[in-house]
């Protein structure tokens, strides 16, 4: 599976000159259980990230049902997590997110609904979506384009998928199966 983004030459963790691909920078958000979630929380795991908000009247319900397919496909796989970031943190407090997760019937250990300052969420979205071929004039704009982003264990971006389209989510599910076997 390809690595996405512009590579650069740099020192690898072993100290050798290597081709390095962009990684998701450190972050810190709060989940639906009021727990702090950061890069360390995802150590050794791959994850799917997306951006949504609970009062979204348009594409979120479709994204939600498609992400549920991903959740159910890997319900017994502890090395996969889903991170859904709210872009409306003023309204979507951890308690609101907790009710939302509870209505969906999903486990917090697998699917984190994250909140934080709006600027920090938009800033991290710029990193997640930096290489996505998203249409900025789509109803959600760049951050709410409906993209699902697949991140590997080293925090590289490995794939973008249109979260409102079943075939795209089928492709995501297939790619996750491949990525789970990568060291």
């Amino acid at each position: 599976m390809p690595f996405l983004g512009e590579p650069r030459l740099g020192s690898s963790p072993s100290g050798h000159l290597d081709t390095l691909y962009p990684v998701i920078p450190p972050f810190s958000f709060t989940d639906q259980q009021h727990h702090l979630i950061n890069q360390d929380s995802l150590k050794g795991k791959i994850y799917v990230a997306d951006f949504f908000f609970t009062s979204c009247p348009t594409i979120c319900p479709v994204m939600k049902s498609q992400m549920l397919r991903v959740y159910e496909a890997f319900i017994s796989e502890p090395d996969l997590m889903i991170l859904s970031h709210t872009i409306d943190p003023y309204h979507d407090t951890p308690d609101v997110l907790s009710r939302y997760a509870s209505d969906l019937g999903v486990m917090a250990s697998r699917w984190k609904f994250l909140t934080g300052s709006r600027d920090s969420i938009f800033n991290i979205a710029e990193h997640y979506l930096a290489f996505a071929n998203t249409d900025e004039s789509a109803p959600g704009g760049f951050i709410h384009s409906g993209a699902f982003v697949l991140i590997d264990k080293q925090k590289h971006i490995r794939g973008y998928y249109i979260g409102t389209q079943e075939k795209e989510v089928d492709r995501l599910i297939a790619d996750i199966k491949i990525l789970l076997y990568e060291p």
């Binding site: 938009f122 109803p139 704009g141 951050i143 709410h144």
Partner: peptide
């Protein structure tokens, strides 16, 4: 709504 929602990215 759909025609103006993309502007939230521009505002940021």
């Amino acid at each position: 709504h759909d025609s103006i929602m993309p502007l939230t990215g521009d505002l940021f």
